[in-house]
Design a protein around this nucleic acid. Structure first.
Lengths: 123, 123
DNA sequence: CTAACATACAACCAAATGGTTGTAGAAGAT
DNA sequence: ATCTTCTACAACCATTTGGTTGTATGTTAG
């Protein structure tokens, strides 16, 4: 990947795994520790730990120490952020997006070198 | 990954790349061919072709032949599907989800072996 | 103190990803 | 017919990902 540190990349990547989405759902109440979560899936503790780490780097969950356990809690705002990225995409059809707001919304577009030498028949 | 053929996996994975999200935005009107898109990014035609293929397998775009060109068009419904997956997640905080509707919404949860021998001190 | 539990993290591995180049086939333009 | 354009796809390569095991460290229970 060219850029890949973009927050949106991490966000959607974190969501692109069934186990991680399941962790998100189960951690809404913030009651479960990493070990408790790990008991729920057919993989090692370390694997689940990594999944939680991916979710954490994406800002989708936070961990809080509670004694020797680390409680995982899904962060509502992050999910909302992801949804808004999609909202923005969807809004393009409804045509209500002026180009200015569009550019401000997500300053992405990896080095979009704005259509160089179009020497050809131009359409 | 344990399962990975799940549509949601492909959906979010397809969205987890800045180039692909940009393609989605630019293809809302379905005017651009793969070659025209390829001119916009600092990578080979084949690379862009692969990105479009990923988007297509995720159901996010469709291609229609127009002469020798293949026009790419973003599919509104797919984006809406992704958004709804997030909506569902978000709704968990608002507490308005009974467990039944929850299970119907996404029959995922990869082999969730429902908390096996909890022999320990049980909290 | 010692034992058991929860976490953190390194090292390793197979498979997937994102990129490349090269070859080949279809469709238009000349 | 020939040339050019657009697309499709295979082969290859470096890096990342998702999993493993092993080791170390901190925290609670006896």
């Amino acid at each position: 990947m060219v850029v890949e540190d973009e927050p949106a990349d991490r966000l959607f990547h974190a969501l692109a795994d069934a186990t991680r989405r399941d962790i998100l759902r189960r951690s809404v109440d913030g009651e479960l520790s990493v070990s408790r979560l790990a008991e729920l899936y057919p993989m090692s503790f370390a694997a689940v730990q990594k999944h939680v780490a991916v979710l954490e780097r994406a800002g989708l969950v936070s961990k809080t120490r509670q004694g020797r356990e680390q409680l995982v809690r899904t962060r509502p705002d992050a999910v909302r952020r992801a949804r808004q990225a999609l909202d923005h995409l969807e809004s393009l059809w409804h045509g209500r997006v002026d180009r200015m707001a569009d550019l401000l919304a997500e300053p992405e577009g990896p080095r979009t070198r704005e259509a160089p030498e179009r020497k050809g028949t131009d359409r």
